[in-house]
Write a protein that binds this DNA or RNA. Sequence first.
DNA 1: GATATTTGACCCCG
DNA 2: CGGGGTCAAATATC
Length: 304
Amino acid sequence: MGSLEKEISLPAASGSLKLVTEELIMKGQEMLNKLESLLVDEGVKKLLAEFRGSVARARTFLESGEPSEVCQDSDRRSEISSRKRKLETLKQGKGGSRRRMSSYPSRRVTSKTHEDGFSWRKYGQKEIFGSKCPRSYFRCTHKHDRNCQATRQVQKSEEDPSFYVITYMGEHTCRDPIDASHEFLLAPNHSPCLISFGASDHCENIQQQPFASFPSLKQELDEEVISNMTPPGGSPSDFFMSSEFAALDVPIPEMAPCKGTVSEHGDEASGLHSSATSLEMEIMPELLSSYDILNFDHVGFFEN
DNA sequence: GATATTTGACCCCG
DNA sequence: CGGGGTCAAATATC
């Protein structure tokens, strides 16, 4: 696992250039937000959404040093072997582009709920070898109308079936993540996403780092897998054990239950209480992605 | 009828 | 070759 310095370094840009680019991107998004709130015309809004996507990709590029999905896609296509290309031309029907997302930046969260404020459409489910719980595959509902490449995989945690292990891949370009977080927070019945500290051992490299009071969003990400450490008094977990948790206890029909485990609903409820030993953080995964996409990649969770 | 989910098949890639 | 990611027809739901 790399050092923190490495994690926050921006390989694509350095020094003042980096600052300028960051400023442009952040200001750009700010202006986009303001503009959108003033717009009524749907056509202009659509244009704005496209531009928003470009800004998001630029930010991804800035953070990762790699082209975002759209660029990467075209790059990859040019590298497709002749055999694959031949197949692609042949298979216009069932199959189409079966590009794998696994090589893209991804981040994993452990959550009590798979609700995150975004609209997902399930496109597949697989029994995973060696795993009791099937894995469900989701893509953004706006994949086609807004060319949003965001996908996610949801799988119940084997260790604690009341948790979902959610792997996000790709960036939402259908709307700005920050906007989404606002909607998310303002929504009356939103379902918070939790990152569990210590409730899961999916991660091989565990940083033993104490943190004081309420860490920054970035810090939270850096320390997703910190330890079983109990938070200090007046802890974040207290904070998150707010009435909003009521929203968590909802049936999740599309998720298949784990084989041989307890019932879905009882589990959801019991999980809320049984997680007292873990520090839970309410986060917005897509908000996180904007700033911390690198961190997850560098802390050793993933191979890419 | 539109939209979402299920599920078997297809195919990439290690 | 087999696991896993994706597609798309069939089916379900609204």
